[in-house]
Nucleic acid binder design. Structure first.
Length: 420
RNA sequence: GCGGGGGUCGCCUAGCCUGGUAGGGCGUGGGAUUGCUAAUCCCAUGUCAGCAAUGACCCGUGGGUUCAAAUCCCAUCCCCCGCGCCA
């Protein structure tokens, strides 16, 4: 949620953001609802004041043994009138909230303006794209031939975009998680294994309405939703809290399975384990002071880069354009890894600064001294590793002439093998 | 799942039986005072509306009763203790 002060006082900023994002949104309706609700607050407040005063008078009369009947009948009328006004006010408030909760975040000035991913900018590239002196295969063929994956049976039992990992691919998957946790522990991150299901209120804090539709699975008959990433759980973890300034920044390494509907991705990456409904992820999630969030953002990207450098996976860093930017994010870097089997760079990391957008929704504030005014924190999130996609990169880039996979150096100790 | 206890403005706590609109302590900040790094006293310390003066709201959450609800009634969530069941 954007600071209501900005919405009220600088609507032109909101208007520009909406056009830069190419999002249709009835800003004028929201502005008129906002002023209407402010008016109604004043009205009901006045009536409540009257009511409070009358209540005091009645109490005083009763105490001194006087008759308060006429005051009481008058008060009945006031109460009725207030009730009517209040229900109107609540209605207006709800309409406003509903709208404001779908309003996307502001955009940072460094973000390139553009219609979609074609306007994304390559920030840098790292590593050398591997050359092969044999005909290479994609991850599906390699892992199938090595007995590492069963997609057909997964389709039978669960549907498309599911998979059974088998044998050493299970170990490789776990090795990635293990390595990622060790790596972030070294960087002083606190480890978090969060709830894999959270309630609506918490989910609404982390995401925007249309994500419910397109990415989030709901549990039948329960107020529970499967998380699309540990970001969702961790964002809500400190909701309604006032944190102490001395503890900041708070850096969490979340590890969890991720569940995604992938609605609207029909036909794309249909085969294999690149785009799936379920995978494991180690995530960086940081709560920072507003003035520190941009430097934290760069740090998180650097940490993610270091991880892929250690794995020796070539990548490039993309700065997402306004049209490709997620609705809760003010600025996002993607890391795209080279995937030999697809002969292209594909997204494996998304690193975003959400400013106070999530923390306002979740009421996560901080202060240094207990008598100070509280401030909203900034929240940032970045993939460290989403296992399936990184597995694709490893399988395809590290394939050998005889159809095996050599294990990246940092993972060898976890796997107790250097070739699969 | 059953029985009992509990959830109060950052933290601790009073008030609930007997309805009249949240009091105290700690912490933190500011001020006053006394010849000194101490003590004492005063003020401030959540949310919303408002330029402000002010005012409204806030007792886990949602309903209800009432002129009036932290307080009474109903529902619901969470925590603690005991019993049961169980990976």
């Amino acid at each position: 949620m954007i600071d209501p002060k900005i919405i009220k006082e600088r609507p032109e900023i909101i208007r520009k953001m909406l056009s830069d994002r190419h999002v249709s949104f009835d800003l004028d309706l929201m502005l008129s609802l906002d002023s209407k609700r402010r008016e109604m607050i004043t009205k009901t407040d006045d009536l409540r004041k009257l009511k409070n005063n009358m209540g005091g008078d009645i109490a005083a009369k009763k105490k001194s043994g006087q008759n308060a009947e006429s005051l009481i009948t008058e008060m009945q009328k006031v109460s009725q009138e207030l009730q009517k006004l209040e229900s109107d006010q609540v209605k207006t408030e709800q309409e406003f909230d509903k709208l404001v909760m779908t309003l996307p975040n502001l955009i940072h000035e460094s973000v390139p303006i553009g219609i979609d991913d074609s306007a994304n900018v390559v920030i840098k590239s790292w590593g050398v794209v591997p050359k092969f002196d044999f005909v290479i295969k994609d991850h599906i063929d390699i892992s199938r031939e090595l007995g590492l994956v069963d997609l057909e049976r997964a389709a039978k039992t669960a549907g498309a975009r599911f998979y059974y990992l088998k044998n050493n691919l299970v170990r490789l998957n776990q090795a990635l998680i293990h390595f990622a946790l060790d790596f972030l522990t070294e960087k002083q991150y606190g480890l978090i294994q969060p709830p894999y299901m959270i309630n609506r209120n918490s989910m609404e804090g982390a995401i925007i309405a249309d994500d419910f539709e397109n990415v989030i699975y709901k549990v039948q008959d329960e107020d529970l939703f499967l998380i699309g990433t540990s970001e969702h759980s961790i964002a809500a973890m400190h909701s309604d809290e006032i944190l102490e300034g001395k503890d900041l920044p708070i850096r969490y390494a979340g590890v969890s399975p991720c569940f995604r509907k992938e609605a609207g991705a029909h036909g794309r990456d249909q085969k294999g384990i690149f785009r799936v409904h379920q995978f494991e992820k180690v995530e960086q999630y940081v709560f920072a002071r507003p003035e520190e969030s941009w430097s934290e953002h760069e740090k998180m990207l650097a940490i993610a880069e270091e991880f892929y450098q250690k794995l020796e996976i070539p990548y490039r860093v993309m700065l997402l354009s306004s049209g490709d930017l997620g609705k809760v994010s003010a600025k996002t870097y993607d890391i795209e890894a080279w995937m030999a089997g697809q002969n292209s760079y594909r997204e494996i990391v998304s690193c975003s600064n959400c400013l106070d957008f999530q923390t306002r929704r979740l009421k996560i504030r901080f202060r240094d001294k207990t008598n100070e005014q509280t401030q909203y924190l900034h929240s940032l999130n970045s993939t460290l590793v989403a296992t399936t996609r990184t597995l694709v990169a490893i399988i395809e880039n590290f394939q050998t002439k005889d159809g095996h996979i050599s294990v990246p150096k940092p993972l060898q100790k976890y796997l107790e093998a250097n070739i699969i």
